[in-house]
Amino acid sequence: MSTLLDTAPVDNRVAFAEELIELASHDDRIVAVCNDSVGSSNLVAFRERFPDRLVNVGIAEQNMVGVGAGLAAVGLIPFVCAAGPFLTGRALEQIKADVAYSQQNVILCGMSPGMAYGELGPTHHSVEDFSWLRALPGLDIVVPADAAQTRIALRQAVAEPRPTYIRIGRHKVPPVSPETNVLERGRFALAREGSDATIIAAGTEVSKALEAAEILAGRGVSVRVLNAVYIAPLDQQAIAAAARDTRAIVTAEEANVAGGLGAAVAAVVAELPKSQRVPMRILGLRDFAPTGSTDFLLDHFGLNAAGLVRAVEEVLNGD
């Protein structure tokens, strides 16, 4: 575990771009669609290799998602790529009606999600995506925590195409999973076993959770870490098991807490039999972010190892 975390952190968009080209070279149904984001979505090499399968609609996100749905309607597999906030915010009704409700197999790629655009401010942060998209039935929400999971998520999207939103991280993260790992649809990935408390973390927060677990182990506290690589469908079994096997659950997400991962977990815990319910702490954003780099903001909101250690100790001792 610690050897993985010691590896140099990387930008998941690199793995995304390489894997998409690899997949497209074997499958001519794959098309990339973007909104003037050829560069920021890392699609330059894709465009050079497959100029006829790169559709840049310009700065027009509603049209971009609608075009994606139309491409899917005639049997193609569109990867619709745009910075998370503009994809999910501006085109939310297209995601609802044209993709989720119409069950078109569009792969929505929310690039540079969370607070990856740190100093550019809340207009450019994608921290509402979980809340908005969780309310849409029939749409998978996938949050790869590292480069290897990003590659696997893309391969699965092509192997079994279905309406899907994938967060493609820009903020560099260390590997948290072996390259050979498989993702099971609707299941969290076990990142570390533990018996006192469980941290359920998504994306950038998985490596922070593993760091926190290591610190807590040194203090005699055993922490299970679940990588919430699927937020929808939600792994209700793993949540119930965490409540049964450990004494508390802490969630961590680079997202607003209103309706996000923590809220989803809490809704499951709240409906467990009384004897199985456990206290929780939900870490995430409760306000628009102030000015600062991504690292500064993660620290500011306590979305770091220290914040997670504090939350676990509080919830184990306080409740």
Partner: peptide, 22 residues
């Protein structure tokens, strides 16, 4: 494609027209 909210059909039609050409 499911329609109802207005302004959705034409973008989807553009995608379908382009997709069949691809």
């Amino acid at each position: 494609t499911s329609t109802g909210p207005l302004g959705h059909g034409l973008p989807v039609a553009v995608g379908a027209a382009l997709g069949s050409r691809i």
